[in-house]
Every structure is written in structure tokens, then in C-alpha cells.
Design a binder for these strands. Structure first.
Lengths: 223, 223
DNA sequence: TCCCATTTTGAATGATCAGTCAATATTCTG
DNA sequence: CAGAATATTGACTGATCATTCAAAATGGGA
């Protein structure tokens, strides 16, 4: 992605040919940006191509149809999202509080949580024709995410002897994360990432007060 | 609305002429259903008119342009939503727990929380061109909603002597409600309203355990 | 009943846009 | 370097769709 990003920024430095994969990636990035700026409904292949500094015939050359371009863009977003939280979990210490913290912070990773990506996600959620598509391509990722969240909540619940059903805690945390993302899109005075993070920590602290405060996980504690 | 709904259901019972307001309302309902079924991007005036059993020229007669039709549909949804929660608050007992319960339940009122309306909201959220529009027409309603939610949370916080910042509790409750709505759209095994309600109650119970359980507000209690 | 204002229809118009393709440019291979 | 393979361009085509408008239908009032 760095290679492509670097190339696509420079106005005239475009190499005539890029590897097949790099060119496709460049067009997918342009698609995300176009959806964010113009909306899904008014995104045209010419827009996407122009944004990438290419001619629109090329989009059909690489993706065959507009529909396939939009599908592959969604798949890319979904995989990128998944890879991000999986990596965050792997990098965090294996205590449930640190794992939940990593999962929460992953959602606000500046690489993932850009305004263009938020807008594109929101557009896909809203497109009815995309719903079967979404479930086909992203449903398994969502399910995996929820299992991860649930496993962490179960460990927290047993450690902290909380009275809550961990399934409900996991569900509330997930919808809170989703809702905050949506809020960042629709509010007229959009929050900063820091405010968004505090909101989610407030939720975590409400469910797991032995483990979390508004500032994040407590240093170290048993039950 | 009842008059229009009744008329629009019957296939042949359409009176040739309806009052201006009733016809417009009928077209707005058809717009919501069309957006839900076909998506915002693929909604055409002919679709909307056909769904209402009318000719497409009539849409322009009543709304002048497609854009104005879509704008007025959004404004209708926003006003309908607002009227619903305002009425629910007015009808509920004036204790903070009952008020919060009313506000939560209002979101799942079967008249408001239909799959077509959820899908239409989601489509509008996702349309970039609608964002300035949304804030212009719905921003004040959203702000009013948040003030109501915050007021209730402040009363609960002082009654229950909870340690939380009521602003954060209000924000988490609001994003949880939004997130649950979004979930009802995007999940492949969509929850029932009852499950959605339990999820939100779990959130309320986490923040206000003296006042709420997973089944709703506790019968009656002081601090 | 006969007008007149209003509503409704659907054919015609013009703009937009996805997809095609022949021509051209570029890179790779031998 | 020659020639093949691949990538890129942009003019063209056909389909779709918002908008216009003249004609027809309707209902209300005199």
C-alpha cells in the first residue's frame, strides 16, 4: 500500500505501468475516496479513474464491471479491518483487560479509522443491493470478531465475578463501537478519536469496573 | 397516514384524486419502501411512482425534482422520529427511570422501527451528498434528543449516586441505540425487537444498576 | 348541466454513464 | 533490437433515467 500511496500522490511521477495488483489496489483506494466524497449513488467509473489519474476504460480493464469493483472494494475494507484487529490482539499481552483494550483501540487505529473509510463503510451498510453481498463476504469476519469479543468478555466476567451475562456485555461493546463510528460520520461537530475512545472506555468501565476506568484498563488486578 | 395507508394498500380502490398533502405523503411512504428494497443508489422516480400505483410524471408534479422528494422524505423521517420520542416521554411517569425506559422503548416502537424505515435511515446516513442536508434538517432534532437523554441521565446519576459522568452515560446509551439499529440492518440473523431491547437494557443496567435490570426499570426505588 | 382549476398520464427529450473496442504506448523476452 | 505480451487511452454505443409538456381526466362550483 505504501508503494501505491506514494505513487498516487505525486502528480506526474506515475509510472506508466504498475503491477497488476498495485494498480488494482490504487483503484480500490480511489473508489473508497470517491464514495466518501460523492456518495455511493453518485460514484461513477470516470470519477474513480480521474481520482487515480487514469482513464475510465482502465477500470473496466482491471475489474470488468462497476459492480465487481465495488464488491472488491468492500472485500478489501473487510479484510483490512479484520487483519487490523487480529494483529492488535496478537500484539497485546494475554490478559483479558489488555486484550479488550487492544480490540477497542484497534477500531480507532488511524490507518483504519479515516474519514474516507468510515464514509465508505457507512455507504455500504446503507446500500440494499449490498446487503446479501455484505453478508456473503463479511459475515464470517463479523462472526469471528464477535467470538473474539465474547471470549474476552467471558474471561473478564469470570475474573471479576461480575453479575452480567458476558454475551450481553460483548454485544453492547460491539454496538457501542459501531454506534460511535456512525456518530463520527453523522454528527455535525464530529468527535475526535480521543473522545470516541473515552466513550467506549466508559462502556467498558460500566460493565467491568474492576478492570477499566475512563482512561483505559487498570494497571493490574485480579478479582 | 392511516387514510393513505389504507388507500395505497388496496390495488384498485385508489380514488382518482387525493388531497395534496395525502398524495405527497403517499409518495413519501413509497420512497421509503423503494429505498429499503432497491437501495438509495438505484431508486428511480418510476420505481417510486409504480410502488404507489401512479405515473412517474406525478412525482415531478408534486415534488418538482427527485432531490426535493428525497429531502422531504428525510425530513419526514426525522420529524416522525422526533414526534415519537417526544410523545413517549410525555406519556411516561416523570421519574428518571421511567423516562429513560420510555425513551428506550420509543426507539423500538413498531411504527418507527420497521425494516423499511431502518433501511432508509441507513441509506441516508451513508449518502455523502445527504450529510450537509442531514445536519441542516435533522441536526437540531438530534441535539434535542441528546439533551433529553442527558437530562434523564443526570437525574438518575444524582438519585443513584453513581460514580459516572452522566454525559458519558448518555452518549453510550445513544450510540448503543444507534448501533443496535445498525445491527438490525446488517446482521444476517437479524435480532428480534425483544433481543434488541434486552441489549439496551443491559447497557442501562450497567450504568444505572440501582434503577435497571435486563428486564427494564426496577419497580420503584430511591437511592 | 357546463366551465374552470387542478390533477394525472405517458410520450418525447436530453443528459449521464457503464461497457466496448480499435488504436497506441509501454515493458518484457529472447 | 525485434516482436510479443500487456497495459492504457478515449471515442463510441446503447441503455437508463430525470425532467418537460401537451393532452386527457377529474371534481367542484355556478
Amino acid at each position: 500500500m505504501n508503494e501505491v500511496a506514494a505513487k498516487s500522490k505525486g502528480d506526474s511521477a506515475q509510472p506508466r505501468k504498475l503491477s497488476r495488483a498495485a494498480r488494482r489496489q490504487q483503484l480500490i483506494e480511489a473508489t473508497i475516496e470517491t464514495i466518501a466524497e460523492r456518495g455511493y449513488a453518485r460514484t461513477t467509473l470516470t470519477d474513480v479513474a480521474n481520482r487515480a489519474g487514469l482513464s475510465h476504460g482502465l477500470v473496466n480493464f482491471h475489474f470488468e464491471t462497476k459492480e465487481k469493483l465495488l464488491t472488491e472494494t468492500l472485500v478489501f475494507l473487510s479484510e483490512e479491518y479484520r487483519a487490523n484487529w487480529v494483529a492488535a490482539l496478537a500484539a497485546a499481552p494475554d490478559t483479558p483487560a489488555q486484550q479488550l483494550d487492544a480490540l477497542i483501540r484497534a477500531d480507532f487505529n488511524p490507518e483504519i479509522c479515516t474519514s474516507a473509510r468510515l464514509a465508505a463503510w457507512c455507504a455500504y451498510w446503507g446500500e440494499a443491493q449490498c446487503r446479501p453481498l455484505y453478508q456473503e463476504h463479511c459475515g464470517s469476519n463479523d462472526a469471528e470478531y464477535f467470538r473474539a469479543m465474547l471470549g474476552i468478555c467471558e474471561r473478564l466476567a469470570s475474573e471479576g465475578r461480575y453479575g452480567y451475562n458476558p454475551t450481553l456485555a460483548a454485544r453492547v461493546l460491539r454496538v457501542t463501537l459501531e454506534g460511535v463510528w456512525l456518530d463520527m460520520m453523522t454528527m455535525n461537530t464530529p468527535y475526535s478519536r480521543a473522545e470516541a475512545l473515552t466513550t467506549v472506555y466508559a462502556c467498558a468501565a460500566a460493565f467491568f469496573p474492576h478492570h477499566f476506568t475512563l482512561d483505559g484498563p487498570k494497571p493490574a488486578e485480579g478479582a
